[in-house]
Computed example of a mutant assay.
Amino acid sequence: MKAFFVLAALAIGATAQTASFLIPQPNATIAPGSTVTIQIHQDESLSDDVQLGIAIGLATCFSGSCANYDPSQDGMGTILYNGPFNPQHDPSDPEAGLQERFNLTFPGSTGPSVLSVVQMQAVGAVKVPTFNVADVVIKIAN
């Protein structure tokens, strides 16, 4: 029974530390070929975590709708960033919590798209590996 509570505590700690998009907001319009600042938020946590890295991808929804698009099943599309993730508090934006900004250049394709972030981290005292996916639907248009 003790093992169950330990595993439950680890699972709760792991799910409370996921990354998500602050910028862009859902349904934002981004010009093709433009460089845009993307802001990724990291949830605060009481347990220790080690960021292993993130990837940010862009998938165009050729069906005209992204309603059923799931990056964890359908893929991330074009990888716009792949590397370290080191979220920090920004004194000029304290309400954003832990976050990091990335300047990314968007490809020339247009239409509804899914911007996704995949995050790998090791959480807790025993460093349980976790894999998280978050996404936001945007529009690439002039």
Rank of each mutant, 00 (worst) to 15 (best):
I79M: 07
G75Q: 09
N82M: 11
S47G: 00
P94T: 10
D43P: 00
S109F: 14
Q51M: 07
F62I: 08
E100P: 10
L104H: 12
I56F: 05
G111E: 06
T78F: 00
I54T: 04
V128F: 14
G97A: 08
Y69W: 05
R101K: 12
V114R: 02
T60Y: 07
Y69H: 07
S47W: 05
S109H: 08
F131L: 13
N132Y: 15
A125R: 04
E100H: 11
V133M: 13
F85T: 00
F131K: 11
H89E: 13
M76K: 03
Q88T: 15
A96F: 10
D48Y: 08
Y81S: 13
Q88F: 09
M76H: 13
A96E: 06
M120Q: 09
S109Q: 13
L104K: 02
L46P: 03
G124S: 03
A67Y: 15
N103I: 00
G111C: 04
D135T: 04
N82F: 14
L58P: 02
T78P: 04
P87W: 01
V118P: 02
G111N: 05
S109Y: 12
P107Q: 02
T110Y: 01
R101V: 01
M120D: 10
H89Q: 11
K127S: 15
A125L: 14
S45R: 03
V117K: 14
G108C: 03
P112V: 13
E100T: 10
L98V: 03
K127T: 08
L58M: 05
G124M: 02
L58Q: 04
A59G: 03
D135K: 11
K127E: 13
A67V: 14
Q42V: 08
T105L: 05
A122H: 00
V126F: 15
G97I: 12
T110S: 08
L58T: 02
V50G: 06
G108Y: 04
